[in-house]
Write a protein that binds this DNA or RNA. Structure first.
Lengths: 258, 258
DNA sequence: AGACAATATTGATATTTGTCACTTTCGTTA
DNA sequence: TAACGAAAGTGACAAATATCAATATTGTCT
């Protein structure tokens, strides 16, 4: 039990059962019955919200837990030799972090909150033990990891060949879809990450990102005011990503929505 | 049990027990005991080698199996609207394919052999059933998927910010390490993929790839003759990738070796 | 509120890479 | 073996983006 008032307030405010969590069907889409869920909940720790700039873990630290974002957002990055960092991903509500560390038993990147963020922490050892009795948990994790691999692939697709315009369009479309899935508006949202982070993630100079936002706005595609984005033509944005597969491919549109 | 002669012949030719397979410790690194292994082997199908250009699966097809490359190499790609394709990955011996399809139950990309290639096929339904009894199988799959996610992240790192030089260097270093791990030379190997595929994967024009190879050769970094590569200075190649993390980071060097 | 630091935007210029056109080499098939 | 088409390499040029420099805006701290 924490001692200061702040924490107590936060805990009481955030102690929500999984089944009442708005992310329930994102975290646990497959059939988990009541008793199984209860046992899972017993090992899940709901951490006090972390402040902007705080770390969930650092690269090189031993791996102990998987995290699920409840609210807020987190960025993953790797520090590089020249004192810079390379951003490897952003994590929005309902998304998991730390999956890349299971195999190494060590975190390969650092995770930093981009804003006040609350997460669920799932201690991996306990999860493993429980999974021996409840194979459905393993199955669920495998599904989520598959989705993660699929999405990384999408990101490869994004960075692979495209122009700055296509990259930023694809990025915005991805963010939009992810917020939408989480129950928020697809056409209006705040970008919690800086232009710097976006450019870094997309392999573009900050200035190029700025210019692209300006161009998009001039073209009437969207309105942008710092971090506040309103997309006026989502369909055109999607087209601009250039990621629509060819013949017979409409059924597996690959610039994913979730 | 298969019925037609063709299959029987192939099976007899390629029926090698997992424990005798040179990829054993790559596929199944953790402790699986004899009986468990035997039961796993019963569901693994060793397919007759596929010829260069043949597909293991196409994007949009229902997902049925995971594949492990035994020998040869495979490329994954997504067809795009303009009739081109976007290469999303290469798979060398000891590596798995199809993990991205578990969640969707549908393949999101196509997989094509770059040369004569033999694979093990693991029907996923049967794997799931068996895993209910042997949780170690699930655990192993999760480890392998974690590794996959880690490597995708590495690829993000590769494409994120780097110049053409850094990209090609990182690519060659990755291929080198993966061959090395499989027991081949780290400094001399054949690139089974075309310049076109490499360029596509790295987000570079074919001509740029060619020019970079030429430059690398002029600099004495390597010798290249079409697909045959000899690397003269692996250490310098590694440095050129620019992926060395900063302070205290040597322990989690992120441009991975496997 | 004021001041400072961080972030974002804009413009001018340099560099890199892509595109186009052509040549060479290789591999396959007749 | 010859001939063809595909893949690879090279050069000239154009286009896209990075870099550098300056300014504007925002957020934060006192």
């Amino acid at each position: 039990m924490s001692k200061n008032k702040d924490t107590v307030v936060s805990l009481s405010k955030h102690k929500i059962a999984c089944k009442d969590c708005s992310l329930f069907q994102i975290c646990l889409p497959v059939g988990i019955n009541g008793e199984e869920l209860e046992r899972l909940e017993q090992i899940i720790q709901r951490r006090r919200p972390v402040k902007r700039g705080d770390h969930l873990y650092h690269g090189g630290e031993p791996f102990r837990s998987i995290y699920a974002v409840r609210s807020g957002s987190v960025k993953s990055y790797v520090p590089t030799k020249n004192g810079n960092e390379q951003v490897t991903g952003f994590h929005l509500p309902g998304e998991l972090l730390g999956l890349d560390a299971i195999n190494n038993k060590m975190h390969s990147c650092s995770a930093k909150a981009l804003e006040t963020t609350s997460v669920c922490e799932i201690p991996y050892d306990e999860f493993e033990l429980l999974s021996n009795e409840l194979p459905v948990l393993h199955r669920q994790l495998i599904m989520l990891m598959s989705k993660e691999i699929f999405e990384e692939e999408t990101h490869t697709l994004l960075l692979g060949k495209k122009s700055a315009e296509e990259r930023l369009a694809a990025y915005l479309f991805s963010i939009s879809s992810r917020y939408h899935r989480r129950g928020f508006s697809a056409s209006e949202f705040y970008l919690s990450m800086s232009r710097n982070d976006i450019g870094n993630y997309l392999g573009l100079a900050v200035e190029t990102v700025s210019r692209m936002f300006t161009r998009f706005q001039e073209e009437g595609l969207l309105s942008v005011e710092r971090k506040h984005i309103v997309i006026h033509d989502l369909e055109r944005l999607k087209m601009m990503t250039g990621a629509v597969p060819g013949k017979g491919g409409e059924q597996f549109f690959c610039l994913r929505s979730s």
